[in-house]
Design a protein around this nucleic acid. Structure first.
Lengths: 229, 229
DNA sequence: AAGATTATTGATACATTACTGATAATTTAT
DNA sequence: ATAAATTATCAGTAATGTATCAATAATCTT
């Protein structure tokens, strides 16, 4: 296993300490800092494999930092936030975070999520040319999609949407994230487009479109494409 | 593996830093500069194996630089650009760039593309000298094409188009891919040429030109040459 | 240079896909 | 349990993409 480096951005010293002890124990390398300003410098000089960012930083919003990072890098970002603040979490996901953990958190949950997000990063190392998820099979190179041996005919948007889902399975994706990725910048608020296309996709890949197995609705947030492989 | 030298042309210091750290870590040699002017001098003095060029340079357009380079060299050029500047990217490809990466990028994707473009340089053409697909038979060496025993008479573009199709059967090819490959760089947007030639090819090889068996239309994307052998 | 072939252009009819808006169904909050 | 908010559904329309063909321009042949 590669020796991953994790960068912690956390101003609350007790939480920071807890993270550091945990990483030491589980033999993750880490570096840590306490402000947005030093966070960017540290990011550039250390090139970490994963970021853990607290949303309540003293010298600027953590979301701002996430946006800046997202201009230049795709590395996994895991956000720390108080549980009650769902809006903050959605905003951070929209800004480009990959996952979130609510405080207080269990050490096991933290480690599980970090591993999951590091794994995801590895998996796009070889920009997979085939994705298989249950009865669904997508061949990126030839642009073929099969559902139960049958070749599916998808329009360009349907295809891009399904592809985005398949590249981000088992992850809650906000409406805005999906719209931005599939339709492009400027479409973040066209939620009805998304509903319409989720509908047509469900008709094509769900046994029972009212009890979807793949595309699950996360009311108030977005969708989650479920895959058990 | 040969010790490749990569030249970075990037004015944004945080992106430049990120690239440099990445190349250091993965043991690529690199040189970097920040302006179009110094880029050309550096190119001439260092003779790199691959160029990474940001499209938004301060003292002149990156496209200009690419054109100048293409006057004197065929080396692989990879363009860096923000995702939303799709027009810029197209223009850069037309100007002679080989590939592009949109910011933000994942380090792995960056490395994968660089490797792919370095490889392309040396890869020899393992093109078969005879291709048979259903009633179609093409002999690359002698340039003969037979359709149902009959020899077909094709114009140069028709021939190149059919050859490209036959070398890439059962794969959806985008309009741009086809245009770039058959007509050459700079023709990516001349879609009408492609339509016209698909039309004439269909007349020559399809039983029923309105229900094509070979050249299928993929609306909004391109064409797919179907072959069941 | 004339004639023949091939490439490009533009106009038009046709086909598919994207978007819109109304209404029904479901979920969440009070 | 009811109201409010969110989501699903679907059919109509707008927008975009494609096929076809004929006219012109460019190129090649002899």
């Amino acid at each position: 296993m590669k020796n991953y480096l994790i960068q912690i951005v956390e101003d609350d010293s007790s939480v920071k300490k807890l993270l550091e002890i945990t990483f030491k124990e589980y033999e993750f390398n880490y570096v840590s800092c306490e402000s947005k300003k030093s966070a960017m410098m540290m990011f550039l000089s250390h090139n970490p494999d994963l970021l853990i960012v607290d949303l309540g930083l003293p010298d600027g919003d953590g979301k701002e930092f996430i946006k800046q990072i997202r201009e230049i890098s795709k590395l996994p970002i895991v956000v720390l936030s108080a549980r009650h603040d769902e809006k903050e979490i959605i905003a951070a996901l929209d800004a480009g975070a990959d996952d979130y953990i609510t405080k207080p958190f269990s050490v096991n949950e933290l480690l599980a999520r970090i591993r999951a997000n590091l794994r995801r990063d590895i998996s796009d190392e070889n920009i997979p040319d085939k994705i298989i998820c249950g009865e669904l099979k997508m061949d990126i190179a030839s642009r073929d999609i099969f559902f139960k041996q049958e070749q599916l005919k998808l329009t360009p948007i349907e295809y891009e949407l399904l592809k985005y889902f398949l590249l981000n399975t088992n992850k809650t994706l906000t409406h805005k994230q999906i719209l931005k990725e599939v339709w492009g910048i400027g479409y973040q608020n066209e939620m009805q487009y998304l509903r319409t296309y989720v509908n047509t996709l469900r008709k094509k890949i769900e046994q029972n479109s009212t009890r979807p197995n793949y595309i699950k609705t996360e009311s108030g947030i977005g969708y989650r494409f479920c895959c058990n492989n």
